[in-house]
């Protein structure tokens, strides 16, 4: 059974909190939003004067088909103003990243959905590579949903590989469980293990267009965000008048078919 999925919202892609899942949305959709990240969810390389800090992310993701999702996002980085050590501290820079995931296997009655994905997979730098792929990781994830007593439970398992040493704490097998109550399916409770901490949270789609997520890392430290969900209807698939496509080749074929039809009719009349 497939459900309308919620996002691993800090970078806008489908998933849990800090763990990817194999869920995809059931319709073409875009997400735009902002998320507050407590420092336990920020990569260790993002430090100012040797200390980690809480930050914000913004993202724009698009799922044009049921099986593919791509996204662009960034995390704000703190610096001293103009890079002067005594300068004022603020969010004067950001780390950008592109993400993508494909779902080669869709969830069936006995079979889980499977997703292959990457975050911050591609860096652009003058020499063709980036030295700041702070979020670079690759994963394979599987998800299965089960309905029990009209309640929906989701079981998610993933293997994740983070490239940079500072993120090795999130490497390996990770996973989580989700619960969607029967009285309000857009609400989802999440419990997950991200390789380092156990996190809990909840997300919700309000009025079809607004997504919210709140979570506690290590069951203590808050992260949360809000996003806009924009569902799409494919062009020409909403009952609008469709016109027959044409080009000179089509017209030539039509004429040829018409001639052929006429010749056939003439033959039939002669017979």
């Amino acid at each position: 059974m497939m459900l309308s999925a919620s996002a691993q919202q800090y970078y806008g892609m489908n998933g849990l909190i800090n763990v990817p899942s194999a869920d995809m949305d059931t319709v073409p959709v875009a997400h735009i939003g902002a998320h507050y990240l407590n420092k336990r969810m920020v990569p260790d390389m993002m430090k100012l004067d040797g200390k980690k800090y809480n930050s914000w992310t913004n993202y724009l993701t698009v799922q044009p088909f049921r099986w593919i999702e791509v996204g662009y996002g960034y995390t704000l980085q703190k610096f001293h103003q103009d890079r002067i050590p005594t300068g004022k501290v603020g969010f004067y820079s950001k780390d950008r990243y592109f993400s993508g995931r494909i779902q080669p296997v869709r969830e069936k009655k006995w079979w889980p959905s499977v997703v292959l994905g990457a975050q911050d997979a591609w860096g652009s730098y003058d020499k063709g590579h980036s030295e700041s792929n702070f979020y670079q990781n690759f994963y394979i994830a599987a998800s299965k949903h089960v309905d029990l007593w009209k309640q929906s439970f989701g079981f998610h398992l993933a293997y994740r590989y983070w490239k940079l040493k500072g993120n090795k704490r999130w490497n390996g097998v990770v996973g989580g469980i989700t619960y969607q109550p029967s009285f309000y399916k857009p609400l989802r409770f999440i419990g997950e293990y991200d390789g380092q901490y156990a996190n809990i949270g909840a997300d919700c789609t309000l009025w079809r267009y607004v997504t919210l997520q709140a979570s506690l890392q290590k069951c203590k430290y808050f992260s949360g965000g809000i996003g806009i969900r924009v569902p799409f209807v494919r062009m020409g698939h909403s009952g609008t008048a469709e016109q027959r496509p044409h080009g000179f080749w089509d017209k030539w074929k039509e004429r040829k078919e018409a001639k052929h039809g006429k010749a056939q009719r003439d033959e039939e009349i002669i017979k």
């Binding site: 073409p28 698009v62 799409f232 062009m235």
Partner: peptide
């Protein structure tokens, strides 16, 4: 490009 009713998204 993927074309939707009132939106187009492409790479």
């Amino acid at each position: 490009y993927c074309h939707f009713n009132h939106c187009s998204v492409g790479a």
